[in-house]
Design a protein around this nucleic acid. Structure first.
Lengths: 200, 200
DNA sequence: CTACATTGTTGTCAATGCCTACATCGGAGC
DNA sequence: GCTCCGATGTAGGCATTGACAACAATGTAG
């Protein structure tokens, strides 16, 4: 027979993360209430504390999850065997992936970076955040080795690229750039980044 | 004789904004409580509502204030009479000013952009945010007219620059770039932006 | 079957944001 | 100079929230 409300939820922890992510993305972190979350999932208001000692711990879990998803998305733009792809196209794909994530996960980004920046953040979270750009970094390095990217300090080159793409995405998230027209603008920006500002 | 606790505060509105800005910068928006704010300023817990109908209105005021200060800081890097300054130096100054603001106003940035992005944000705030980069934009245009910057769509060129600088600052704010070494890194990034990624 | 850790429930507490009724101040108009 | 009245601040109350503690149900290892 059907158990109407089994005592144990099954996987409350995962359900909390999933639902909380929805709420944060939809209405921002300010709209997230542990008690309402519990009500949504049909458990008592004290249940979440068995999985997250406090609200910040839940936010940390959301952030960790976000960084993992972002890392996977970004890594896809720099496949290991990329010798047949031109770097500008790779870069455009990378930027597009980043922008897509930012647009689709709007308010979650703020939670992610706030959690990472926070004093006393768990090491696991810090590490996940730091790994976010590892694959793109290596992709840039390979392009540099192929001579498609100007030689020089890899840190300097990579920082410029990451800053530009991250900044482009952030400007959209901040509403200073319209997501609608951003497709063409994105291509233009990447092209300008590659060609440089100084007249050739 | 000295009035110990005059009934009227004098300029409670400004005091609220000032103290709230301090708290947000120091401990983030999550640590901001209207009641504690009132206690700090020695007024009753209901007093703030005379100046801000709700907490969001106070945050909007903080954001407006922040955008104004940022705009002034950034405009200073592009003085109207800049014919004697080389564009790369101007750009470095602009980036340095932006980074300085971001580092000094850490958590306030999140409040600013969240408030701007928020549905139902006051027009005044939207306008202030949109004006933030007006002067730098004109400075870039002038540099372009002088032939120091590659010709072409001003939107495209300006977006690339703003995105890179904003992204660089954001990466620092997010803790993905260390503020200590950022001085040299910043110069390198700006240089790389000017010279382009493609080998010349 | 029985201890025991895990998970969920219930009740409680202080703090918060917001609302309403009331008190005090200070200036505009007479 | 006085009075009225809007602006500003106070006091109390209410629902919601996050955190905590005591208790109950469940599943499992031995």
């Amino acid at each position: 027979m059907a158990e109407l409300t089994p005592y144990h939820h099954g996987d409350l922890r995962a359900a909390l993360i999933a639902r909380a992510t929805e709420v944060v993305i939809a209405d921002g972190v300010g709209a997230l209430s542990l008690r309402e979350l519990a009500r949504d999932l049909g458990v008592s208001h004290g249940a979440p504390s068995r999985h997250f000692p406090d609200k910040q711990a839940l936010l940390d879990a959301l952030a960790l999850n976000g960084f993992d998803r972002l890392r996977v998305d970004l890594a896809a733009a720099f496949p290991l065997d990329d010798s047949s792809v031109r770097f500008p196209d790779q870069l455009a794909g990378f930027a597009a992936a980043y922008v897509r994530f930012v647009v689709q996960n709007a308010s979650l980004l703020a939670v992610m970076f706030a959690a990472k920046h926070r004093e006393g953040a768990p090491d696991e979270l810090r590490l996940a955040a730091d790994r976010t750009f590892d694959e793109p970094m290596r992709g840039i390095e390979r392009a540099q080795a192929r001579g498609e990217v100007v030689a020089g300090d890899i840190e300097e080159v990579a920082t410029t690229i990451l800053a530009t793409v991250h900044g482009f995405a952030s400007l959209i998230a901040a509403g200073l750039l319209h997501p609608d027209v951003s497709g063409a603008t994105l291509v233009g920006t990447v092209g300008r980044l590659i060609e440089g500002l100084r007249p050739r």
